[in-house]
Simulated scan of single mutants.
Amino acid sequence: MEEKGKKYFRTYEDLAIYQLAFWVAMEIFDQSKNFPVEERYSLTDQIRRSSRSVCANMAEAWRKRRYKAGFVAKLSDCEAEVAETQVWLKFAVKCQYIKVEKAREIYGNYNQVLSGLVKIITHSDDWLLD
């Protein structure tokens, strides 16, 4: 949907950045199924939680577009969750729970998510509700 040269989205699920974050979270879920059982309540839980939290915080940010400070704060939370997920990903590689090539792919996808988040934060006024 377009109006006066601006693109509008009905829901956060329409955003390519959300779709990528969701896809990557599901990729992490699939990869973490192969983690050792002794990691169930630590690394497995942490990486799944933080990757899912990226998407959840985007949804919350979307609903806070009436208030710039709240919107930007939630998007900043998304950035933090991406960074946390990337750290857990490095641990998974170091512990040899995930192949380096797959981790690089996931890490790169999260860098794309970060890039999109920074663009939205930088131009947050364009996203606010009138």
Results as ranks from 00 to 15, higher is better:
M1L: 13
E2A: 15
E3Q: 10
E3L: 15
G5D: 07
K6Y: 12
K6S: 07
R10T: 06
R10K: 13
R10N: 14
R10H: 10
T11F: 13
T11E: 12
A16S: 14
I17G: 00
Q19H: 07
A21P: 08
W23F: 15
V24M: 07
M26P: 12
E27H: 14
F29M: 01
K33L: 12
F35G: 00
V37M: 15
E39A: 05
S42C: 07
T44A: 03
Q46M: 05
R48H: 03
S51G: 06
S53D: 03
S53G: 01
V54C: 05
V54R: 03
C55D: 02
A56C: 15
A56E: 00
M58D: 02
M58N: 09
A61T: 04
R63Q: 10
R65N: 12
R66S: 04
K68Q: 07
K68L: 04
A73I: 09
K74A: 10
L75C: 13
E79A: 09
E81Q: 14
V82R: 00
L89G: 03
V93Q: 03
C95S: 06
C95N: 14
C95I: 14
Y97G: 02
Y97D: 00
I98M: 04
K99A: 03
K99T: 01
E101W: 01
K102H: 05
R104D: 02
R104A: 04
Y107P: 01
G108F: 11
G108A: 04
Y110M: 14
Y110W: 10
Q112T: 14
S115K: 14
L117T: 08
V118A: 08
K119E: 03
K119R: 14
I120K: 04
I121Y: 10
T122P: 04
T122G: 11
H123Y: 07
D125C: 08
D126L: 11
D126V: 06
W127S: 02
L128T: 04
L128G: 03
L129Q: 08
L129C: 11
D130E: 02
